[in-house]
């Protein structure tokens, strides 16, 4: 098992290399002149040329890339062209906000969707099932930025219960987390339901009942326990998505997270900030995947056996 984890951590290296390569080249080869952005609006042509020399923009892209990687190895991600602040520090200052939002959203989603998914599965084809499925259907059909605006309209502007943006207090977390969470809940409910439906038909459920186990025990200890694998997959994927892609929710609620960070800086051709952010995001995603895979092993002994076999 330890070897498995170590192998996966080593895979971070090619992940970082590939993602940095792709984004660095993409940013440098697709139009836009960073020198002009750095020098500012009122800069003269000479000043712009000075900046070019200073930052090494006249060198071939591959050289610039190697220079960047050399810095990276020494732990230096460079300075933002736009804000002149250290890339790593900026990213790390915004990361906790995104993490907060992601975990809060997933928490809300799971608390709603897993019980609902189980409930609709065991009451399949009744009005209870249909109601639950209607909720789930609406949830996946709704654009989450619209849901966010509606919630702001209702709970912030009309009722004044929550702030409409920014990150001032705990109350600021509620609307964004509910917005993202409800969308996730719809998706996870559907997955839970379909996974439970598969499990309910299994023979070992009947064995458990024949033992005299209560229906509740049969559903949860024997049923849900076996239905978890696909559910964990979806939850893990959604967690990964919300960590790296909450740009919409962050835009609607002016939430200072990393999605919005990347968005703001990419149009400004801020290569260091964007490259650095994307590298850190890919590391983040790999770590989340690793944690999810470890959880698989904890939940399903057959998977654990596979990991141990491989070494």
């Amino acid at each position: 098992m330890i070897r498995f984890i170590t192998e996966r951590l080593l895979q971070l290296i090619p992940a970082v290399l590939i993602s940095s390569f792709i984004i660095f080249f993409a940013m440098n080869l697709t139009g836009g002149d960073p020198a002009m952005i750095i020098a500012g609006d009122k800069a003269t042509a000479e000043r712009i040329e000075e900046v070019r020399e200073e930052y090494g923009f006249n060198d071939p892209v591959i050289v610039q890339y190697l220079r960047y990687m050399a810095g990276l190895v020494r732990g230096n991600m460079g300075i933002s062209y736009v804000t002149n602040k250290d890339v790593f520090k900026t990213f790390m200052s915004r990361l906790p906000n995104t993490v907060e939002l992601a975990f809060a959203s997933v928490f809300i989603a799971v608390v709603i969707s897993i019980p609902l998914g189980v409930y609709t599965a065991i009451n399949q084809n009744t009005w209870k099932d249909n109601l639950g499925m209607v909720f789930a259907l609406f949830g996946v059909s709704m654009p989450n930025f619209w849901l966010g605006l509606i919630l702001i309209l209702a709970f912030s502007l009309r009722l004044g219960w929550f702030p409409s943006g920014g990150k001032e207090s705990f109350a600021s977390l509620v609307l964004p987390a509910v917005t993202v969470g409800l969308g996730l809940a719809a998706l996870i409910t559907r997955t839970t339901r379909s996974s439970m439906l598969d499990v309910i038909r299994q023979d070992y459920m009947r064995t458990a009942r024949a033992k005299g186990a209560s229906e509740r025990r049969v559903i949860y200890k024997h049923g849900l326990a076996n239905a978890l694998i696909p559910i964990i997959t979806v939850v893990g994927l959604q967690l990964s998505n919300t960590l790296t892609g909450s740009v919409l929710a962050e835009s609607v609620f002016a939430w200072p997270g990393i999605g919005r960070l990347i968005f703001d800086h990419i149009s400004k051709r801020d290569t260091p900030m964007v490259t650095g952010s994307i590298i850190l995001c890919s590391i983040l995603m790999c770590l989340v995947n690793l944690v999810v895979d470890i959880i698989y092993a904890l939940v399903d002994p057959r998977i654990k056996a596979q990991y141990v076999k491989k070494g």
Partner: peptide, 28 residues
């Protein structure tokens, strides 16, 4: 009633089924 039935099942009368490959909970 159901709760009394659960006491009977497994204790006074027990049942085994045809396919052993799927009769056991894979994660216990």
């Amino acid at each position: 009633p159901e709760n009394k039935l659960q006491e009977v099942r497994g204790k006074d009368v027990a049942m085994i089924f045809q396919d052993p490959m799927t009769a056991l909970n894979p994660v216990m």
